[in-house]
Simulated scan of single mutants.
Amino acid sequence: MAEAGFPGQHTTTTTITSSTTVQTNIRFDSSYMQTLPGILKVIQVGASLLGFISALCSSFSHLSKSQYFMWISMIAFWYTGILLGFYLFHIVEKFYKIPWLKMEMCFTCLWAPLYLLAAILAITVEDSAHYAAAFFGFCATAAYALDAFLKWRGVRAGGLAQGTRVVSKQTTSVAPPREGY
């Protein structure tokens, strides 16, 4: 016998549907640079290159602080530059099964504090070229930190790096009518 006041039957059905829309042809699309992720990548590439050149042109470029800054900026320049090219030519969309957002999130989460440290070390060198490098390092730090947050939000939402994914969730619940007391 069922407990008094407790329904004898309760059914809950949850239906989750997902639809992914991608175009797998490689094509050039400059409109990506007008989106926030595209603008951030352009800032990251530009700040990395200008920071590298500033540190390299210094008469103190042989110092380990300067070498560290140049190492961080060149890795960031090449990684982000290649990714920017992938996005511009929709290579990311062609290979949408690769977890691009997670890879980018890991890189940006790692590179934001590494760039912050490099910029702080560069500013400790008493040289105008290193001051310029530190400025570009702080700009890159801010761009990587904001990009890391956006990538984290995208990963959490289950989004794609390029293309669209629509996830809809429908929950229905059926309970028997309650008897009067």
Rank of each mutant, 00 (worst) to 15 (best):
G8L: 05
H10K: 01
T12S: 04
T15H: 03
I16E: 04
S18A: 13
S19N: 07
T20P: 03
T21P: 05
T24Y: 04
I26D: 01
I26T: 05
R27L: 00
F28H: 05
L36Y: 08
I39S: 11
I43W: 12
Q44R: 11
Q44V: 07
G46N: 10
S48Q: 03
L50D: 06
L50W: 12
G51V: 10
F52S: 00
L56C: 10
C57E: 13
L63E: 11
S64Y: 12
S64F: 13
S66K: 04
S66C: 05
S73W: 05
M74F: 09
I75D: 03
T80M: 07
G81N: 02
G85I: 13
H90L: 13
K94P: 07
K94S: 06
F95L: 13
F95M: 10
F95G: 06
W100G: 10
K102H: 02
L110C: 13
P113D: 09
P113M: 11
L114P: 01
L114K: 04
L116Q: 11
L116S: 08
A118H: 11
T124Y: 01
T124G: 00
T124F: 07
V125G: 03
V125R: 02
E126L: 03
S128C: 09
A129G: 06
F135E: 01
F136R: 02
G137A: 04
G137P: 03
A140L: 11
T141N: 04
A143D: 10
Y144H: 08
A148F: 08
F149G: 00
L150E: 11
L150C: 11
K151L: 14
G158E: 02
K169G: 06
Q170K: 14
T172R: 12
E179C: 09
